[in-house]
Simulated scan of single mutants.
Amino acid sequence: MAGIDHVLTSGTFSLDGGTWDVDNNVWIVGDDTEVIIVDAAHDAEAIAAAVGDRRVKAIVCTHAHDDHVNQAPALADRFSAPILLNPAEAPLWEMTWLDHKPDESIAHGQILTVGGIEIEALLTPGHSPGSTCLYIPELGTVLTGDTLFAGGPGATGRSYSSFDTIIDSISGTLLTLPGDTVVRTGHGDATAIGAEAPHLEEWVARGH
Rank of each mutant, 00 (worst) to 15 (best):
T96A: 01
P102N: 14
P91A: 08
A46S: 01
A90I: 10
L98W: 05
H65C: 00
E104I: 11
G30P: 01
I47D: 09
A58G: 09
P91L: 04
V38M: 14
E89G: 00
L98C: 01
A81V: 10
E89Y: 07
I59G: 10
L92W: 13
C61T: 02
A90K: 09
A50R: 07
A64P: 00
D77C: 12
V69W: 00
W93N: 05
V69I: 14
A64K: 01
A58D: 14
D32A: 10
L92N: 09
K101P: 02
E34I: 03
E94I: 12
E34A: 03
V51L: 03
D53E: 12
H42G: 05
L85T: 12
E89V: 06
E94H: 15
P82G: 08
D53R: 05
L84Q: 04
H42W: 04
I37R: 15
D31P: 04
L92F: 05
E104K: 06
N86V: 06
A88W: 09
L92C: 04
L75I: 09
A81T: 14
L85Y: 00
H42L: 07
A76M: 13
D43W: 02
S105W: 09
D66F: 03
D43L: 01
L75P: 10
A50H: 02
H68Y: 06
D99Y: 15
D99W: 08
G52M: 07
V35G: 04
D39V: 04
